[in-house]
């Protein structure tokens, strides 16, 4: 029974993050490589409510299924999403575990966004474009990442309080 509940939670979180991630394509951005990373809201919520392991699982499944749905599976977009997602989820998970008393979800989300950008740019450099010039873009990404990190963190605070009120909260102990 516990297993079924756990799977139900993971499935609904994965479904939410795929929807949020796809919906993001309709949000206008001045540059195609500047994205808000709204799926991070779900990853952070998963970490805050159910722990790092479920957060990590949600992120990995989201990247797999999301890229299969939009047809970018095993393309650069897939590796970037996977690397950035796993990196930021790990950082946010450990930060939440160890530094929960100090930082709110906003601070943890900003850490995640920063990590996401650095990891993605490193992957671009290591796997795809072996020119140091790719790091030109780093300052812009870092600044923008702080902004999106704050936005996502605030959203995650609302989402966690909202979700905690509903039935999923009763499974809180299982992670």
């Amino acid at each position: 029974m516990r297993r079924i509940k756990r799977n139900a939670i993971i499935s609904s979180l994965v479904a939410m993050s795929i929807v949020v991630h796809s919906a993001e394509m309709f949000v206008p951005s001045p540059f195609p490589w500047l994205r808000f990373g709204f799926a991070n809201i779900i990853a952070l919520t998963a970490i805050a409510l159910y722990g790092l392991r479920i957060g990590l699982m949600v992120t990995i499944l989201r990247v797999f299924m999301g890229t299969i749905l939009v047809g970018t599976f095993l393309t650069p977009a897939f590796f970037l999403g996977m690397g950035g997602g796993i990196g930021s989820t790990l950082v946010m998970g450990f930060a939440y575990r160890k530094l929960k008393a100090l930082f709110s979800l906003v601070g943890i989300s900003v850490m995640g966004a920063y990590t996401h950008n650095i990891v993605q740019l490193t992957i671009v450099y290591l796997l795809f474009i072996r020119h140091a010039e790719v790091f030109y873009i780093l300052p812009v990404l870092l600044l923008f990442g702080i902004l999106t990190g704050i936005l996502n963190g605030v959203a995650a605070i609302y989402l966690t309080t909202y979700m905690a009120r509903f039935s999923l909260a009763q499974f809180e102990s299982i992670s």
């Binding site: 100090l102 900003v110 870092l142």
Partner: peptide, 16 residues
């Protein structure tokens, strides 16, 4: 936002 949040964000903005 907590105080460490603000310090963290401020620090990261400066780094960026």
């Amino acid at each position: 936002l907590t105080l460490p949040d603000k310090i963290l964000i401020g620090g990261l903005v400066i780094v960026a």
